[in-house]
């Protein structure tokens, strides 16, 4: 029923031929249109490498990556793939190309040969969308990290993409910047149906995803809804992931206090509601 956005068939990749192990080891993955997919895993598990395979910055050694029906190994469609797959990187400073906000948002459109008149129109439209309209002429060193990331998103949105990949895009931001960026992304996901792939160490952030993937040593080791994954937190901690506070609290309440909590109590609200009900039952 849903359109397939990304179709990965047993993708293998390594940076150097002499490396003994695959950095990405037989990865298969389908992503559907409009989905919010979170990818987590410890440092060096291959998340960024996977992300770079999705817009053809890296091409598979074995297997295939298909984006909206185009193979990333096909040079001729690479350009169209990069237009429909936008990518926000970790460091806000190192992806800001223009000397001003306007110039930076336009950079992608210039590359793709958008006619100037349309460029100007899309420019104000996408700046509006990320709430950065009043910073048009601002230089990057006068912006906060969160603002820079929102400008990066505006630059991508202006290209009318189908997929946006956030590669730890919020990890260098303060809580305020982080929530601003995520708010914009949720808005884009809901109203424009843009597929979001969010790579993050923050399981709190991942818990709001539709689906979650846990990676370890180049393989997908867990896959499912955040509820499914957090239901069995064993193994996640060993992988160096920090569970969300509510998940830890729920686990402790069950193990130490012997409370009888249902399988759904993961968000703060759900947990509070359950606890209320427990109190009332006594």
């Amino acid at each position: 029923m849903n359109e397939t956005m990304i179709d990965i068939e047993s993708l293998c990749f390594k940076y150097r031929n002499e490396d003994p192990d695959w950095i990405l080891d037989h990865i298969s993955l389908h992503v559907e249109a409009g989905e919010w997919l979170a990818i987590t895993g410890h440092n060096g598990s291959g998340k960024s490498t996977l992300a770079k395979c999705l817009n053809g910055l890296l091409v598979p050694e074995q297997g295939s990556v298909k984006v909206k029906g185009f193979f990333t190994s096909d040079e001729d469609s690479l350009w169209e793939i990069r237009r429909s797959v936008g990518m926000v990187f970790q460091n806000p400073d190192n992806q800001f190309v223009g000397t001003t906000v306007r110039d930076d948002v336009a950079f992608g459109m210039e590359n793709h040969g958008v006619p100037r008149e349309e460029m100007v129109q899309r420019l104000s439209e996408s700046l509006e969308l990320v709430g950065m309209s009043e910073f048009q002429g601002q230089e990057p060193h006068r912006l906060s990290g969160g603002q820079k990331q929102r400008v990066a998103i505006a630059g991508i949105v202006a290209l009318r993409p189908s997929i946006i990949i956030l590669d730890e895009a919020t990890s260098m931001l303060d809580p305020r910047g982080k929530s601003d960026v995520l708010k914009v992304m949720h808005e884009l996901n809901k109203t424009r149906g843009i597929t979001v792939i969010s790579i993050t160490h923050d399981l709190e952030e991942a818990s709001s995803a539709d689906r979650m993937i846990v990676m370890d040593e180049g393989r997908i080791v867990r896959e499912g809804t955040p509820i499914d994954i957090f239901k069995e937190p064993e193994g996640l901690v060993e992988m160096g992931l920090d569970l969300p506070f509510t998940v830890k609290l729920r686990q402790l309440l069950i193990e130490e206090n012997g409370l009888n909590l249902s399988e759904k109590a993961f968000t703060e609200k759900e947990l509070v509601d359950e606890l209320w009900k427990l109190q009332l039952n006594i």
């Binding site: 770079k52 817009n55 910055l57 350009w79 990069r82 237009r83 936008g86 990518m87 990187f89 190192n94 992806q95 190309v97 950079f107 992608g108 459109m109 210039e110 590359n111 793709h112 040969g113 958008v114 006619p115 100037r116 460029m119 630059g155 991508i156 290209l159």
Partner: peptide, 15 residues
């Protein structure tokens, strides 16, 4: 990397 991801490919077909 970021420039390439945003479709930069030199002076070809640029506006």
């Amino acid at each position: 990397m970021a420039m390439e991801a945003r479709g930069y490919r030199g002076d070809i077909g640029r506006t």
